[in-house]
Design a protein around this nucleic acid. Sequence first.
RNA 1: GGAGGAAUGGCAGAGUGGUCGAAUGCGGCAGUCUUGAAAACUGUUGAGGGUCACACCUCCGGGGGUUCGAAUCCCUCUUCCUCCGCCA
Length: 423
Amino acid sequence: MLQLQIIRENKEAILEALKKRNFDAKPLIESILDLDEKRRSIQTNLDATLAESNKLSKEIGMLFKSGKAAEANTLKTKTADLKETSKKMGDDLNATVEALQNQLYQIPNIPHPSVPAGNTDEDNEEIFKEGDIPTLVENALPHWELAKKYDIIDFELGSKITGAGFPVYKGKGAKLQRALISYFLDKNTEAGYAEVQPPLVVNEASGYGTGQLPDKEGQMYHIQVDDLYLIPTAEVPITNMHRGDLLNEKDFPITYTGYTPCFRREAGSYGAHVRGLNRLHQFDKVEIVRIEHPNNSYQALDNMVEHVKDILRDLKLPYRILRLCGGDLGFTSALTYDFEVFSTAQDRWLEISSVSNFETYQANRLKLRYKDENGKSQLAHTLNGSALALPRVLAGILENYQTADGIKIPKVLVPYCGFEEIN
RNA sequence: GGAGGAAUGGCAGAGUGGUCGAAUGCGGCAGUCUUGAAAACUGUUGAGGGUCACACCUCCGGGGGUUCGAAUCCCUCUUCCUCCGCCA
């Protein structure tokens, strides 16, 4: 959520910047500024009424004390009137504040200056590419066929138990999952991220805090009886650990890593692009989250990018990094880098990580602040990234590491797996 | 599941109807002392709205009520603690 004060002061610049998202914010912002003005005018009137009422109350108290009950009682009738008006104004104020809030929720984050203009993922800007694309055996198979051939992931079985998009990992497939999780967590903790295991279910306030609510509730599984949501990413519970905090400057940086399953309803389309592990309702992910001083957040973003690079180098997977264009940028993000692994067997790039700086957008909703050197409270910056999301990494490994007689395990994972090949 | 108790500023913790945005301690900040630091001492220090700046307003877990007036009384929700029961 953008800060009102910034909207007030930089209206034109914001409108211009949001054009990159192909988002015409003009009507919303006009309306927000109107509501803001209305709110302040109601507030001023209400404050004056309350001030008078407070003053009278004090006088009444004094009159009673000095035994002048009759005078006190005449004043009482005055305060009754004031009370009625202030109640009306209070209701009016609440309604205005709520309308204002709802509209503020509808404005996406301002893209960072480096974000390229564009409409779709075609317009994303490739900024880095590394790793050799392997030459595969003839008749190389996509991962969903490899999974069947070696009996390591069973999609039909998952459909039977739950539904499409909930695979069952079996045998060496299950072990490889566990190995990846351990390896990622080790890698992240070595880099200084503190490991946490958060709840997999969150309340409504947490959903609002990181921006999944309102509007995007369709993407989350909602447990109605208890009014709780299954997390779509560990970003939600981990970032919300600091909701409402007032930090000291020396608390920065705050860095976490956590493994969680993630749940996404995303009805989505059908066909090759969502086959197998390409898109699931439940998948595993190891996430990194940072809370940073505004001066340092882009440095931190770069660090996160370097860290993810390092993991992909370890795994020896060919990958590229994209700077997302305005049209593809997430609602709450100011700048996002996507990592994609090339799958030779599918002949396409698979998104395996997304690293973002949200600047103050989430912090404003979270009321996550720090005291600056002057003792003033300021909003912190929040960032997060996948390090990494499992399914497509797994797909990339299965597809790129396949040979005529089996699937080699990347060297770095062998100690975690306890085997060198799936055959 | 049953019975009690509690929720106050960054933290701990007083405060049971007006003089309370709130004692005290810790922490933070500034200063004195010191070559420097620590200790000690002195001062300062809640958040939000509003204003050029003041004034002023709101906030004592959330919501509602009683009252001229609520941190304080009532209702309700949430969370935590203690005891009993059940259970991995």
